[in-house]
Simulated assay, not measured.
Amino acid sequence: MGFEATQKGNPHKLTINQHVFPKKGIDRFSDENGLVQLCRKEGAKVIRVSSTNSLFCAQRVWDQGTEAGIGKSIEDRFQALVDSILSGFTRVIGCFEKTVVEDFFSLWRTRQKLRAEGLDDFRLEGIEGDSLTKDEQEILERQHVMFCRDGVMPGRFAARMHVFGYMNTFRHDNQHMQWGIARAGEGEFIVPDCFQDMMIVPISPKLMIVADQPNSTLTRSEVAVINQTAIDRSTDYFFARSLSECPVYRDGPPRLHRMFAN
């Protein structure tokens, strides 16, 4: 599914490349050169890329209100929490932190679903919509206003409803879920494009937030289990600061042994 291009020069500064996992989160896994090692599952090729690489992005799959409004709000709260964890100030995921983590995890998973599947334009029965120029449409979207064209609403506007809907459902379904901070005692963590149904949020090469687990320090074998899960759950790619520092199952296929060999 293609994306709707903006006017030449993108005069209203609409976000075209939309990060699924936040740029700031990817940067925490970067090396001294500002790069991460990324493995594309198709062809199992490892490349070194920065957080601005288009592989990390959807192209205008959700509207500007979803990107710069609700999405940014959720991201900002989560990044503030991560900074607090990394500084040692926050050591427990309590009631307040739980909501922040769960809203972010739901946003991440919803973005990945939207990136993979997209949203078709849809007709609103009984609504014709105004006749708007391209410039007027972009001005409205920049102001987080939805619009129709001849009774048809661009699919990206429905993303806002999906984000809210999935977030509320996730909160309701996991009211009693507790989260813990897991530290890698040995090795480093792999980040998938999404963990799908596994409620795990990596925040640095050595730290992640995990559902239904107490705060803990993981052995190398336990890190390997999580990293294998990250690989298995990923759709298109996974990345890390250094894949050679990330243990995976020892009984994995030889190809994985070669890929992660020191």
Rank of each mutant, 00 (worst) to 15 (best):
T66C: 12
Q196V: 10
T66N: 13
K13I: 00
S204V: 08
C148D: 06
E102T: 09
F238E: 04
Q112L: 13
K23F: 08
P154I: 14
K23I: 08
M167P: 01
H19K: 03
A224F: 07
R258N: 02
G65H: 03
F89K: 15
A224G: 10
V145W: 14
R156V: 13
C39W: 02
H19M: 02
A116D: 15
S131K: 04
A182R: 06
F89C: 07
P253Y: 04
E188Q: 13
V201S: 10
D63Y: 09
P253H: 02
K72G: 05
P22N: 01
F104C: 04
N215D: 08
T133F: 02
A68G: 06
S73M: 12
Q59H: 07
N53H: 11
E138R: 08
E117T: 09
Q175G: 12
I93A: 04
S106W: 08
S87F: 11
H257W: 04
F56Y: 04
K45D: 14
T99Q: 14
A224R: 03
M259L: 15
E188P: 07
R220L: 09
L218T: 02
M167G: 14
I209K: 05
K206C: 11
V248D: 00
L218Q: 04
E32K: 00
H172G: 10
R142L: 12
V36E: 01
A80T: 15
Q7T: 07
F3S: 05
A158P: 08
C148G: 06
Q79P: 08
E42Q: 12
F157R: 09
L218D: 02
Q18G: 01
H257K: 02
D173H: 04
D251M: 10
A159K: 09
N168K: 11
D27N: 05
Q213C: 14
G129Y: 05
R183H: 15
M259C: 06
S51D: 07
F238L: 02
V191Q: 02
L38M: 01
N227P: 01
S30M: 11
F21T: 09
P192W: 04
F78K: 02
F238N: 03
L243N: 00
Y249Q: 01
S51A: 09
D121I: 04
D83Q: 12
V61P: 03
S242K: 01
N174D: 12
I26L: 01
Q112D: 14
R60L: 09
A116H: 10
F29D: 06
A240Y: 00
V101S: 10
S51M: 01
L132W: 11
V92F: 13
V225S: 05
K206I: 10
G2E: 14
G151L: 05
D103C: 14
F29W: 06
K13F: 05
